[in-house]
Amino acid sequence: MVGMVLISHSFKIGEGLKELALQMAPEVNISVAAGTKDGRIGTDIDLITAAIEEVYSEDGIVILFDLGSALMNAEMALEFLEEEKKHKIEIVDTPLVEGAITGAVEISIGKNIREVKELLEEMKLGKKA
């Protein structure tokens, strides 16, 4: 099953969103990298890397993020991973809340990483799932 990583600058937002997504799809493996190690607002490459490792699956992982610097740190975190893992991870630019819930539901019904990514990218264009 595809895994999901949620990256947010706020620990509360990240954990709350995970809780909401798991209400809709409790069997999906979701990890959160939110805030900094010392509890401040921001993102942290080490936390992102740990979140990826926590839910890594041969089926792949989708990573969703809230703001531009979270994207930058996600891309940097991927640089620290083994090559075979990098190719099974998709960073998707989509609305975070809607994307997390829709992505979790799609994963829970057996969609593969390509199908999940395509749907989430359509959401960015204003199309609702």
Score class of each variant (00 low, 15 high):
M76C: 12
S57E: 10
I41N: 05
S8A: 04
A74K: 04
I101F: 06
V2W: 05
I7R: 07
S31A: 14
L67F: 08
G68S: 14
L47A: 04
I109H: 11
G35A: 11
H87N: 14
Y56G: 00
F11H: 11
S108D: 08
L78R: 04
A25V: 10
E79H: 09
V116E: 06
K18C: 01
L20V: 13
E118I: 15
V28R: 02
L17C: 09
H87D: 10
N112S: 09
F11I: 09
V62P: 00
V116S: 05
P26N: 01
E83A: 13
S57P: 00
T94Y: 06
I63F: 07
Y56H: 03
A34T: 14
D44P: 10
H87T: 14
Y56S: 00
D38A: 02
G14H: 07
T36G: 14
S108I: 12
G99Y: 01
D38W: 09
I13Q: 00
A100N: 05
G68P: 04
E84H: 11
K111M: 13
E79S: 13
E115G: 06
A50M: 07
S57G: 03
L17A: 01
N73D: 15
L64C: 08
G16R: 06
K124P: 09
E15I: 14
M4W: 12
V32G: 06
E122A: 07
N112M: 07
A104V: 11
D93I: 09
E15M: 13
F11A: 12
E83S: 14
V105N: 05
R114Q: 13
H9N: 12
I107A: 00
I107H: 03
G103N: 02
S69H: 09
P95L: 00
I41Y: 12
E58T: 05
D38E: 14
D93L: 06
S31Y: 06
E84F: 11
G35S: 07
L64I: 12
I13H: 03
A104Q: 07
M72F: 11
G110M: 09
V32P: 11
M24I: 14
K12P: 02
I61C: 07
E82T: 07
G35T: 13
N29H: 05
I63R: 04
E58Y: 02
P26D: 10
Q23S: 10
G42M: 02
T49L: 15
A77Q: 03
G103E: 01
E118S: 14
V55C: 02
N73R: 09
A104L: 03
E19T: 15
K127V: 15
I13A: 01
P95I: 11
Q23V: 10
G14C: 04
T36F: 05
L47I: 11
L96D: 09
M76W: 13
G60Y: 00
V92I: 15
K117M: 01
V62M: 10
H87V: 14
G16I: 02
I52C: 01
A25W: 12
